[in-house]
Structures are given as structure tokens and as C-alpha cells.
């Protein structure tokens, strides 16, 4: 039936919006107070790893942040965060993601402004 045919893609769109909880996990041996922890992100590489490392290092509450790709043939990215103790590593990660997001928005806005000046509309 046409009705059904139409319904199917709608379901997939909802699926897309589902949160993929497997995407990131906390690695064992995090400190009890949560101020130092390592995370593992699936299917990400230097593209996000280095950018996220940079922005988390910009956080004055963070003592250390580093990332590594433990093995070249596994699509895994490890991020280590240690804070000075005022915030937890998870909080530092969230702040980093928010900051990185606003950075992207700023660059996008600036680039669009430039294109308008050049006289190109997208």
C-alpha cells in the first residue's frame, strides 16, 4: 500500500535521531572523584581528536588533555582528561564540545558574511 510505503522512511528518520550510546564510553580506571578519566570514541580519528584536544586544553580547569589512536586498524579514538579538581572530566568534555560547536558556528557565520561581500549567495 502507498500508505505503508510512505511510512517506512519516516521510521528511519526517527532512527537517525536516536542517540548512539555506543559512540562514546568511559574507559576503566577513572579516578573515584571523576576528575581524571579516559574516554573512547568509536569511528572518529585525528579530525575530531586533535580539535577536541585543543579546545579542552583551552579550559583553565583542565590540567591535562591528550588523545591517541591506539591502533591504526581500529576506528577508535582515546581521549584522556585530567582536571585540577573543580570540575569532573565528563564536565570538561561537555564544555569542550560546546566550545568547539560555538567555534564552528562563528567560522560559518564569518564565511557566509564573506561570501555575501563577494556577491555569492548560497
Amino acid at each position: 500500500m502507498a500508505q505503508e510505503d510512505f511510512d517506512v522512511p519516516m521510521d528511519t528518520q526517527e532512527q537517525e535521531q536516536d542517540v548512539d550510546l555506543e559512540k562514546i564510553k568511559l574507559l576503566p580506571n577513572a579516578s573515584d572523584d571523576g576528575t581524571s578519566a579516559s574516554f573512547q570514541v568509536i569511528d572518529e580519528d585525528h579530525t575530531l581528536g586533535n580539535a577536541l584536544r585543543y579546545i579542552i586544553m583551552k579550559n583553565p580547569e583542565v590540567e591535562f588533555c591528550g588523545y591517541s589512536i591506539p591502533h591504526p586498524s581500529e576506528n577508535k579514538l582515546n581521549i584522556r582528561i585530567q582536571t585540577y579538581g573543580n570540575i569532573t572530566a565528563v564536565e570538561a568534555l561537555h564544555q569542550g564540545l560546546d566550545n568547539l560547536s560555538e567555534l564552528c558556528v562563528t567560522i560559518e557565520g564569518n564565511f557566509r558574511e564573506q561570501l555575501e561581500k563577494v556577491g555569492t549567495n548560497i
Partner: peptide
């Protein structure tokens, strides 16, 4: 995507 997944971490 990571932000959403990390909410689960929280």
C-alpha cells in the same frame, strides 16, 4: 552526535 552520546555518560 558525541554530545548526545556523552549525555548518557553524565
Amino acid at each position: 552526535t558525541i554530545k548526545d552520546a556523552a549525555e548518557g555518560l553524565m
